[in-house]
Design a protein around this nucleic acid. Structure first.
Length: 422
RNA sequence: GUGGGUGUAGCUCAGAGGUAGAGCGCCAGGUUGUGGCCCUGGUGGUCGUGGGUUCAAGUCCCAUCACUCACCCCA
């Protein structure tokens, strides 16, 4: 048989209920923080990502699904959402009506990496992006929104890692300092890091190779190079978080693999997902809007990994399918036709109904109703038909009542409503 | 891209040269109109795929594919 593509996965019904739950909470929660949804497409010009994420990042160098379009241009399945949201912000001049835009988007991303636990080639993110606010209190506010979102989903405890990457002005001397400190010791570094030394020295900081760690430990931290503005910004972010009772740790090795970040960078981690510990991450990207052809505009955002979040929730509780409120058990052709009418009418009124389309014994029907964990069973057979009634059985209590066939739909709805209030 | 582990029933797994198994699930009966518990029966597999060794291969050998975990990196 034809199987699904490597690194991709089906989200089966039981798991999908968890996804619906996560996304619903996200919409409600972000909404109460003043965010509105935006839905950019999953396909973009390859150049968008090369220019935003950075030419020498792992994502752009080896992980993008890129293929030729019909006009000689290159198209890419988006590896992340921020670039698309920024593009939309600029293209539709959203800043013209109001430079401050708080947007969220939910959807799939694509990266051609080797799959493993918590890492898929199509994965899903919930992104939030804020444009037009430079205040460090926004950084703290956004991180608080993210953590309270996890709180609503009851997935804590989580670790909050925080760092400042500075701005282009203070990062330049810092990069030079790293390069200067390490290039004379390059023979002690791994081959990847030797390459990074030239292309992207910041990435040396979070290399996991022991030898590189040893060398990096002796280099100065970004914190020592922050300019006055960046320093003040970072301090306010930290004090703002502390004021809201957020526990975090400053992590000088937190760099993140996208070039556009400036100043605040953060990552939310868990110990419960094997090697893939990051469940959300983000940061400030004050230069990106201008870099992509828009006005000079501060911005900050984050991404939550929905796949990892769903796994975390599923590890704590078993999912279940939605229970039918009423299951129809009809015996015989005449009873079935009547049940069919009632079942359709109830479904159309928003009641969760299940009706069996095979001819089976009442025992078999009851067994099925039980397995589906139906709240009620409506039994209709010759006996009921002759008395012009139907038998409504409450499964948990085994209590049964006769319901007149005339006005049955309304009577059943009244009964369900009174039950749900108890 | 590199390394380790695993592929046998829908699911979890046993079988280690000699007739393909268990538990759970599913279907039915025990109750000619009543679920769960219990009992009985039934359904269900090219043993991942291809080749080799052998009288005989889930079982040994080779190849290959898939899945999975880890490295790298990230959500």
């Amino acid at each position: 048989m034809i199987q699904l593509v490597r690194g991709f996965k089906d989200i089966l019904p039981e798991e999908a209920t968890v996804w619906q739950y996560i996304e619903q909470i996200a919409r409600d929660h972000f909404g109460s923080f003043g965010f509105n949804e935006i839905r950019p497409p999953v396909l973009e010009q390859a150049a968008l990502f090369r220019r935003s994420i950075g030419e020498h990042t792992d994502i752009v160098e080896k992980e993008m699904y890129t293929f030729p379009g019909s006009k000689g241009n290159l198209l890419t399945l988006r590896p992340e959402a921020t670039a698309s949201v920024v593009r939309a912000y600029i293209q539709h001049k959203l800043y013209a009506s109001d430079p401050v835009q708080k947007l969220y988007t939910i959807g799939p991303m694509f990266r051609k990496e080797r799959p493993q636990k918590g890492r898929y080639r199509q994965f899903h993110q919930i992104n939030a992006e804020v444009f037009g606010i430079e205040s460090p209190y926004m950084d703290a506010h956004l991180i608080f929104m993210l953590l309270s979102f996890f709180g609503k989903l009851a997935v804590d405890p989580l670790r909050v890692h925080l760092n400042s990457l500075g701005c282009p002005e203070c990062r330049k001397p810092y990069k030079e300092a790293i390069t200067a400190a390490l290039s004379e010791r390059a023979e002690l570094l791994c081959t990847d890091c030797v390459r990074r030394l030239d292309k992207n020295p910041l990435r040396l900081l979070d290399c996991k190779v022991p030898g590189c760690r040893e060398e990096v430990a002796h280099t100065p931290g970004m914190v020592d190079f922050l300019c006055d503005g960046c320093q003040a910004h970072f301090e306010t972010v930290k004090s703002g978080l502390a004021a809201m009772g957020v526990v975090f740790q400053v992590d000088p090795r937190l760099v993140r693999g996208l070039d556009y970040y400036t100043r605040t960078a953060f990552e939310i981690q868990t110990d419960e997902l094997g090697a893939q510990s990051a469940i959300a991450g983000g940061g400030r990207y004050d230069g990106l809007v201008e870099q992509l052809g828009g006005p000079s505009m501060p911005a900050i955002g984050f991404a939550v990994g929905t796949d990892r979040l769903a796994e975390l929730i599923l590890s704590r509780q078993d999912p279940g399918l939605r229970r039918p409120e009423i299951f129809f058990a009809a015996m015989g052709e005449a009873a079935w036709r009547k049940s069919f009418e009632w079942a359709c009418a109830l479904s159309a009124r928003g009641i969760r109904v299940e009706i069996d389309f095979s001819e089976r014994s009442l025992k078999a029907l009851m067994r099925r109703a039980d397995r589906l964990r139906a709240q009620y069973v409506l039994i209709v057979g010759d006996r009921e038909l002759s008395e012009n009634t139907a038998t409504l059985r409450h499964m948990a209590s085994s209590r049964q009542i006769a319901v007149p066939a005339d006005g049955l739909v309304k009577a059943v709805m009244v009964e369900l409503r009174s039950e749900s209030q108890q």
